[in-house]
Design a protein around this nucleic acid. Structure first.
Lengths: 241, 241
DNA sequence: AACAGGTAAGACGTCAGACCTCTATTTCCT
DNA sequence: AGGAAATAGAGGTCTGACGTCTTACCTGTT
């Protein structure tokens, strides 16, 4: 069997193949992979190439290798990468077992402020599309979101109700957001936000201030997410470098 | 020249060597590395081993490889990985431009509580070493730390003043902490903690509740870090998976 | 002189096969 | 039965070769 079908590097194809075999259930957690010699023959690649793929899979904790013993599919899909994984707010809510909903408060084109131009690398005079929404979990408001996008990237305006901004951007402009840098800022009571989220002085809030970038490192989306900390919390996987 | 001095895997030593050459300035951003054939000869390892190291360095964006061209030191160290990088509290304080200090409040061996046994995978009856400290920035208290370690991993007790728990653990027990999972919990005013950190009701606090693991995925250290959110803040790099 | 195309050098990508080292098991001796 | 030694088989490393891609240079034409 060979998996060659060149477009990406071979070792990447090998990684994809193994990953998809795990997801499809052909390989199950804890199971031992065939030996490197055997597996490389099965995949139709050299052992060196297979080893580059396995080394990366090991780095990602998808696989565990033990000298003299074998290579195993990691049983615990580790921790969900937590907040280190970039997902939409909708996903975040659903992962914690609630049903997600959205209320759009306002969408408008506006002049860009200094702060926005700085974060989004915009020139004076360019406008921004601003979207204010409240996300709900089981009907209760838990997140207040303000998203800003340079106007020239958002020609048609944002209308769809529940649709994720990520998917909307990708389908209308082809821009794919690949990563974000988030600042984590705890906040005390804030009149406007606390009211919107129906919580009182004793409920701590968490602000996630994020800049999202596409594959070319262009800043695309600047967002403020205010969370009710009693309903939503985050974890981070921290790795030693 | 050879870098062998076996303890860790060869490819890891190669990675360390290249990283340290970057940090020491022997290799500068944008510079091209010698060819793989040349470099492997210089380091005294095979090209296959060198390539495993380079592949991982590429994954970490430390190095950029271009087919047919060469391997280059990445010029933009991207963003500091932020809180996604595991570093000591001391480092975190110094990165923000303050001078770090430590005050030990208490160290004691205690019975393990249910919660601690759960987090650290301990059996009933095992004790824990508990360390309470306050970390200061320019003399001001900014972090209150409670660290717990299974007693059998901490035979001699923790005495050294400024020493990092990480380095102390590694030098006395050989245990090397490689990653941690942190929960981020904003907190309002808390009488004990707020007093220790000399702040009032209006200062939000951030609790970083972490479990540290070694290379074998054994939980080693369970720590609570309470931060003054006005003095210290975090960012996370979030990647799409 | 300017341009286009061909060619060759050198880089990373992949391959094949060998040997080393470590682990777990089996075998054998006491 | 128990422990020591041999063994099989896994990952770890090495060597040398060839493939593919970039780049730079050389050359011939306009």
């Amino acid at each position: 069997m060979s998996i060659k079908g060149n477009s990406r590097s071979l070792f990447l194809l090998v990684m994809d193949k193994i990953k998809s075999d795990i997801e499809s259930g052909k390989l199950r957690p804890g199971e031992r992979l065939p030996s490197e010699a055997e597996l490389s023959k099965q995949l139709g690649v050299s052992r060196a190439t297979l080893r580059e793929a396995l080394r990366l899979l090991e780095e990602e904790k998808i696989v565990i290798r033990r000298h003299g013993v074998g290579t195993f599919i990691n049983s615990k899909p580790v921790f969900s990468g937590g907040i280190g994984e970039l997902f939409s707010v909708t996903d975040a809510i659903e992962r914690q077992g609630y049903t997600a909903g959205t209320m759009i408060l306002k969408t408008s084109f506006e002049e860009s402020a200094e702060e926005e131009r700085k974060r989004l690398s915009m020139k004076p005079g360019e406008g921004v599309l601003m979207i204010e929404r409240i996300r709900t979990a089981d009907g209760l408001p838990v997140v207040y979101c303000i998203d800003r996008i340079p106007a020239h990237l958002a020609p048609e305006g944002y209308s769809a109700g529940g649709e994720s901004i990520f998917t909307w951007l990708e389908s209308t402009t082809g821009i794919r957001i690949t990563y974000a840098v988030a600042e984590i800022k705890p906040m005390g009571y804030n009149e406007k936000v606390s009211n919107l989220l129906h919580c009182d002085r004793s409920t701590p809030l968490l602000l996630l201030e994020q800049i999202h970038y596409d594959e070319n490192e262009r800043p695309i989306l600047y967002s403020h997410n205010y969370f009710r900390a009693d309903k939503i919390h985050f974890h981070v996987v921290r790795r030693r470098m």
